[in-house]
Write a protein that binds this DNA or RNA. Structure first.
Lengths: 372, 372
DNA sequence: CGGCCTATCTTCGATTTCGAAGGAAGTTGG
DNA sequence: CCAACTTCCTTCGAAATCGAAGATAGGCCG
């Protein structure tokens, strides 16, 4: 899928272009060249022409789509106790998504081999015959060195430090492989749902707190830890030491794990962040107060970042995100304290992509590798 | 200077390429095409061939430079009481730089007309005959809407709110015009001096506190206020109300203006941030303690941003930056509290471009507009 | 219903770009 | 000093790209 040809496919797959005319506008190529190229791509079975689009005042465009037979992507989002796994077509539409229990404490080798087997499962059960697998990707709950695909200094993945996850996956599938932090994948997934936003902050509020940053439409990786907000010192009366060794990290107060531990001390049994959400929805005052406080702390941290980055939107996802008081108090803190220039037109809302955001993000990033 | 031709010129002007071979590598064009294009550019007097470069193991390259006659850029950096003005050639080398007193309180019309007259002065005195002015740019000490070139809600520029600075300048010179926040220009200028750094935070510590952000090699503007760190709430025992209406903003504790006001209360007369630096260098303990505290507060704010953005370097400039304790305490705070992954290989140091950084940055950004 | 307008897509000759081959001008190492 | 190798740059036929003109197909409106 060489360069210029790949550019056209990418534009169609990413949903940016639906017709030859749009391709010409976005790719910068002449309309005639686009027509030629598209004809070739249709000839080789990668694109299909499908009906007509809506008119913009003239002749209706002939709508282009990626052929369902163009290929599949196998993607996963690895959590501490569960993994979501899915198959996508090249335009990122899920064919199937499953959640399976799995334990990353069994170590990287076992977990990745398990993942490879799960992918084979899914392919056997759901892949249409003759459609090739074109790429494999996974999110992991820790920092990933973007250059090497290794996990680096993960606090929630004991035994995984410096493990070459990408290499191990590539040993199973001789294909483009993507390994990325889970919050970053979520951000990449949301980015597709917010096409008008160039700069985006995507917060993952689950048992941990993660954040992914989209700058200028592209995921910002930094050295692999970009987006980390969990170890920021928060203003607090008491003093708690975080697992990172510092005092009063945001994570120690506002993460799902922290909330659960406080609730546990109060004799309220919770096992997953979703249980906290349920308590809030049932009006349990202890849970509501805790969540509201967590939102305020998160919001105060976001305040600094919003002034600095001026995002177009802040998207809140993760298993804690359905709790209304969380996002309400985040909003309150940000709108109250940020510069007017930074908050006018700033949207703060919950995920548009839902629980599959990270899988969709993996698909979106993988596409670039596959069509390079 | 149409597209592809402009790309080649830009690569030479920005100092990225010095030979046809380098141009071919960086532009992605075939070597033969580059040769053709370069021949045309030499023919039209924009490029000149000048001696030979150093061999990389084979034939020596024929060094290319922008012709000194290719054009000039007039650039300024507007401060509260002074303006730096300069003329640059298209590769960003200063022909002349001057500092002149000027008072932005006289309002935008008067100030911009004054600036235009000053540019005419400089051109009459220093421009080689026949070399055309190709672009005009200025930095202003407030937020600028990147789309319109208007100043937006500036706290230190009363009377300038929403004034179309770019339009007024364009009325004097019918040329590409650039108007940008001063800290952003400084960041753009430093970026050229840190070519290996993709992500850069440039702090301007003067009478105010500003910051410019380079992400992926390009200036990040956001909505025009990106990089603002002055109105972040800091941890403090006392309570000070900032001009923005909130309490305990960084600016109210750590800006040059704040330091000067505290020193004044202690009976120590200072008139400019540079006087504070002199006091520190002379070992006046009150000044040293104040500066050290300012560095700590700034450092604690940077902590959050470093974890989030993972810059390759933090560059400190501005009139307060020569004060050693300032940068020392910034370093201490950042290295102590940030994630190891974010601080390994993170460089924190003072400006490489010196006091002309903003002018050089204006040149660098203008070049893109001129060669578009 | 029938012009008129707009937008999409194709055709085809002119132009640009490519890339393989080769010449030019060095360095390196015996 | 000479042969082998690198890198830089140009030459020239082949291939891709462009762009103007035209064909196609719809919307809009009297």
């Amino acid at each position: 899928m060489r360069g210029a040809q790949g550019d056209l496919l990418r534009l169609v797959a990413a949903g940016h272009a639906e017709s030859r005319a749009e391709l010409a506008r976005l790719s910068g190529l002449a309309a005639s060249s686009v027509s030629l190229r598209v004809e070739e791509l249709i000839g080789s079975g990668l694109l299909v022409e499908e009906g007509a689009g809506t008119s913009r005042g003239g002749r209706r465009p002939r709508r282009l789509r990626l052929s369902p037979g163009a290929g599949l992507l196998a993607v996963a989002d690895l959590g501490a106790h569960h993994a979501r796994l899915g198959l996508l077509d090249l335009s990122g539409t899920p064919l199937v998504v499953e959640e399976r229990p799995c334990d990353i404490l069994e170590g990287p080798e076992a977990t990745i081999d398990w993942m490879a087997a799960a992918f084979e499962d899914l392919l056997a059960a759901h892949a249409p015959p003759g459609v090739p697998l074109r790429g494999v990707g996974t999110g992991v709950p820790g920092p990933v060195d973007p250059a090497t695909g290794r996990v680096v200094a993960p606090s929630r993945m004991p035994g995984w430090n410096n493990f070459p996850v990408a290499d191990r996956l590539a040993a199973h599938f001789d294909l483009p492989v993507l390994v990325e932090n889970d919050a970053n994948l979520m951000a990449a997934g949301e980015a597709r749902a917010w096409p008008k936003c160039e700069t985006l902050m995507v917060l993952k509020a689950g048992s941990g707190i993660g954040c992914g940053v989209i700058v200028n439409g592209a995921l910002h990786r930094g050295r692999g830890a970009a987006g980390d907000i969990s170890h920021v010192r928060v203003r607090s009366d008491s003093s708690v030491t975080c697992s990172c060794g510092h005092d009063d990290c945001l994570e120690a107060y506002a993460s799902g794990a922290a909330l659960m531990s406080v609730l546990g001390e109060q004799g309220i049994e919770v096992r997953r962040p979703a249980d906290v959400v349920a308590l809030v929805e049932n009006g349990v005052p202890e849970a509501t107060a805790l969540v509201r406080n967590a939102g305020r702390l998160i919001g105060e941290v976001l305040t600094v970042l919003v002034n600095f980055i001026n995002p177009d939107a802040i998207v809140v996802g993760g298993s804690l995100s359905p709790a209304e008081p969380l996002i309400a108090s985040i909003r309150a803190a940000v709108y109250e304290r940020c510069l007017p220039l930074a908050t006018r037109d700033l949207e703060i809302s919950t995920t548009r992509s839902g629980p599959d955001a990270a899988l969709l993000g993996a698909g979106s990033l993988l596409l670039d590798a596959v069509l390079a």
